[in-house]
């Protein structure tokens, strides 16, 4: 039963990720006084891309062909161990939060390789920048989730959140720091302003888009979808680690219903904050990103230190 519900949750996760992307796009348009496309637009785009002819650059090796599938399937697996509506996921025992970070790293590894595969300058540029940003963001993310892991003395994401859920409401200073750190990492890793701007038309300022410039058709659909899933994972992580209230801790129908409503409200809140931040900030120069990520790293480390110094013993 638990496995079945877990599977349903994964399907829900994967299926609603484009919806979240559509909603963010809508909010962005509203914040910029533009006409907004329907929230279903990302689904139409994905559908269109899957049906379109796939153009592959000359000289591509199997890495280029395999990478989209690896990226997509790893994103789905990562989604499987993040509690969306309910905790007590059986899959979370298979892979803990360190594996989650490992999954992100694996997907990025193949994406960067695919960027280098054709041998164009843009692909290499994107790969190099992506790996730079990621290698600074990954430790920050690990430290942020380690704060949770050490506080709850488990690296099992679902169990940690379940423990947190049953605790009386307390504001932990360590979580404030760690949450801020993770939020900055999420901004950097999902290609948002101020680190990256996926809507740009200038290849020279691209990070993520430069890597996937050669992709088209169903390959591109897979990569886009995986990126939407990743965006959703970060949003759900932020929502459920630092505001776990409302998550279902059993698989009863009422609890699940409340869990749905809770996550919906939390995601709406987070996306509004994200879009407002994007609206008021400008994109940074690439070599300012290190300060941004260094700050995230510092915040996450501070969270950890606050915990081990103030909250233990």
């Amino acid at each position: 039963m638990a496995w079945l519900l877990n599977l349903l949750q994964v399907i829900l996760f994967v299926a609603t990720a484009p919806l979240l992307a559509g909603w963010i796009k809508k909010l962005k348009c509203w914040s910029q006084n533009r006409m907004a496309p329907s929230v279903l637009q990302p689904y139409r785009d994905l559908f269109k891309l899957i049906r379109k002819e796939t153009v592959v650059a000359e000289g591509a090796s199997w890495i280029f062909h395999m990478a989209p599938y690896i990226i997509f399937s790893v994103a789905v697996l990562a989604a499987a161990i993040v509690p969306l509506v309910a905790v007590q996921l059986p899959t979370a025992r298979l892979a803990d939060v360190i594996v989650l970070v490992g999954f992100f790293a694996l997907a990025r590894f193949f994406q960067a390789l695919a960027g280098l595969d054709i041998g164009t300058a843009f692909g290499g540029m994107g790969s190099s920048r992506e790996m730079t940003v990621a290698s600074l963001a990954e430790p920050a993310m690990l430290m942020a989730v380690f704060t949770l892991a050490v506080s709850m003395s488990t690296t099992n994401l679902s169990a940690a959140i379940a423990t947190l859920l049953h605790e009386p409401l307390t504001i932990r200073p360590s979580f404030v720091f760690a949450g801020l750190g993770l939020a900055l990492v999420a901004v950097a890793e999902t290609g948002c302003i101020p680190v990256d701007n996926p809507a740009t038309h200038l290849e020279l300022t691209m990070i993520h888009e430069a890597m996937i410039l050669e992709y088209s058709g169903h390959h591109l659909a897979l990569i886009e979808w995986a990126a939407q899933i990743r965006m959703m994972i970060y949003a759900v992580l932020l929502a459920n680690i630092f505001m776990p209230w409302g998550l279902a801790d059993n698989f009863g129908l009422a609890a699940l219903g409340w869990g749905m409503i809770a996550i919906l409200v939390k995601l709406v809140g987070i996306t509004v904050v994200l879009v407002l931040a994007e609206a008021v900030l400008a994109k940074m120069r690439l070599f300012r990103a290190q300060h941004f990520l260094g700050f995230a790293y510092l915040l996450a480390l501070l969270g950890m230190l606050t915990h081990v110094i103030l909250e233990v013993g």
């Binding site: 890495i63 390789l113 041998g119 790969s127 790996m131 290698s135 600074l136 990954e138 430790p139």
Partner: peptide, 21 residues
């Protein structure tokens, strides 16, 4: 954690530059 992130970047460089392109 930092060394892990950098190692991944380094081996993307190695494999990408030696075998790809």
């Amino acid at each position: 954690a930092l060394s892990g992130g950098l190692a991944a970047a380094c081996f993307v460089k190695v494999f990408g530059v030696v075998f790809l392109g």
